[in-house]
């Protein structure tokens, strides 16, 4: 720093020197004496938050919220409206042992003005299976069908490969019926359900789902999207692509 620099800034120095000096208030000494009488220097601001907590708490909160949504999206991979089911490879070998039935309802009946899907009744399942419906399939609140996406997520918590009876799955997509000797005979389709929109008709006999034969003993695994259904109609096999 040179003397020239100092001289260049001399006007600033003079300007600051012209500022009026403020005086301490008349009760200044009283305030000091009062604090001294209190016995210790006052802690500014009272309760103090440690610096690590002041910076760390908001960060931890952001990470917790972000982590929750990240994990949530991770377990919801795929189209929300696609029923995620697949035929169990061992379906014909061993059906789950029926346990005392109980109701598992993850989505209670609700009525929303934005005409989202409403699942009106709980499904009856065994303990080894988890069935629930969360995400909408149809816009019509009276529509049938549904996703077992939530069931998939819930199932992972208790069972490595959650198994769902084929009957339940077919009911969920809106193909009401019963098993006969040659397969699942559709007795009715729920209006605006996946079954109806995919042109599954009353009288069709569902032979396979995603290429896997369906019998009354079949159970389905909930980690593969439901894509195709083969039905027998008027004596002919017809492949139907499930429409969402």
């Amino acid at each position: 720093m040179s003397d020239e620099d100092l001289q260049n800034n001399e006007p600033v120095s003079r300007l600051l020197g012209e500022l009026k000096h403020v005086e301490a208030p008349s009760d200044f000494d009283f305030g000091v004496r009062a604090r001294i009488a209190a016995g210790r220097p006052a802690e500014k601001g009272g309760f103090r938050i440690p610096v690590w907590l002041a910076y760390g708490a908001p960060l931890a909160l952001v990470l917790a919220v972000g982590g929750y949504f990240a994990l949530n999206s991770f377990y919801s991979v795929g189209d929300a409206n696609v029923p995620v089911v697949a035929l169990n490879e061992k379906a014909n070998v061993a059906a789950p042992i029926p346990a005392p039935s109980r109701e598992v309802v993850s989505a209670p009946p609700v009525t929303k003005p934005d005409d989202q899907l409403v699942v009106k009744k709980p499904d009856v399942v065994s303990d080894s299976n988890v069935v629930a419906v969360k995400k909408p399939i149809a816009k019509d609140k009276n529509a049938g069908g549904g996703s077992i996406d939530l069931a998939s997520r819930v199932g992972r918590r208790f069972h490595a490969t959650p198994q769902i009876p084929a009957k339940t799955v077919l009911d969920l997509i809106g193909a009401k019926g019963s098993f006969e000797a040659d397969g699942w005979r559709v007795q009715s389709t729920t209006p605006n359900s996946l079954a109806e929109r995919s042109q599954i008709q009353t009288g069709d006999v569902i032979e396979s789902v995603n290429g896997q034969t369906v019998t009354d003993k079949s159970t389905l695994r909930s980690n593969t999207p439901l894509k195709t259904v083969r039905v027998r109609r008027d004596g002919k096999s017809v492949d139907i692509v499930i429409k969402n």
């Binding site: 000096h21 005086e23 301490a24 208030p25 305030g31 000091v32 604090r35 006052a42 500014k44």
Partner: peptide, 29 residues
């Protein structure tokens, strides 16, 4: 020193009440 310290803190903080408060705290310390 009360007025010089108050003035110094006032120019530092640009807040007279805070300056007085800290000046008093200075003397307490």
């Amino acid at each position: 020193y009360r007025s010089p310290i108050t003035n110094y803190l006032y120019r530092f903080l640009n807040d007279y009440e805070e300056a007085v408060d800290l000046a008093q705290e200075t003397f307490v310390r």
